[in-house]
Design a protein around this nucleic acid. Structure first.
Lengths: 134, 134
DNA sequence: TTGTACTGTAATTAATTTTATTACAGTATG
DNA sequence: CATACTGTAATAAAATTAATTACAGTACAA
């Protein structure tokens, strides 16, 4: 993840938890993160698809958490934004080489286990825990 | 890490361990990984700067491990290629917002701990362990 | 002592990914 | 019906990553 999506999603979720029960507009959230509102809306759609937020269209609309912060794990947020493998992609090695032919399988095993460990750790902290720090 | 450098470095180190004691050229290594030899040379320079490989210039030159595979941890390889934070960059939030003002500190704490966990796990496997699988 | 096969490295280009922006249709509210 | 939102497409801009070309320097070996 060379990108900023996880940090953005954490920020969104933290704001929604912090502003407890209030419906926040993408414009407001974007103002806090200091990014473009369209990116916020896209991330909100994604977070909603993962059951983490609710949103309302129309005037006075916006987003709020779909469940209490105690029931949301940082791992849930990670899983929502995860797209590429944590430790990077693989190459397309030469199958005529003994090492080349087998390495992707082993690298993928390694990466999978590493990522499981990370997710397990992120599963120990709830959004409520995280927001308590503020 | 949306990139392929860790996989490339693992491949290089695996080949060097697998081909035990032999000096391998960047051309040969690149042929196994199926990437450009210049990238291999650059990565070899980096791995050498981290004390993981040795290299020899001139005819018959190339690279070999700087120490036995049992003394090399996958964490060492990870640290050699690490550049950006594992879980991504942060935003530059609005300091006028309570959450915005504090969030980067908390995100960095979180990211640091997560990365420590990952490195700790990668420290459990030696290059020798990894190469045994082939 | 010269040809050969390498590394090291700079410079450039190409490809890919990520982020920002513009635009607007659709929806809910007062 | 005006207003303030979301959702989403399309595009452009920026940033990152990988590939390529080029060549000076080094070591070996005939």
């Amino acid at each position: 993840m060379g990108n900023v999506r996880f940090a953005t999603a954490i920020h969104i979720m933290t704001l929604l938890a912090y502003m407890d029960e209030e419906v926040l507009s993408s414009e407001y959230i974007a103002g806090s993160i200091n990014i473009n509102p369209v990116l916020v809306r896209k991330e909100l759609v994604n977070l909603r698809n993962h059951g983490l937020v609710q949103s309302r269209e129309g005037k006075g609309g916006g987003a709020m958490l779909a469940k209490p912060p105690k029931q949301i794990l940082l791992a849930d947020i990670y899983n929502a934004v995860r797209q590429a493998p944590l430790l990077g992609r693989s190459n397309h090695p030469n199958p005529a080489c003994e090492v080349g032919r087998q390495i992707n399988r082993h690298i993928e095993d390694l990466y999978d286990k590493a990522e499981q460990t990370l997710v397990h750790q992120l599963g120990k902290t709830t959004l409520a825990d995280f927001v308590k720090k503020f």
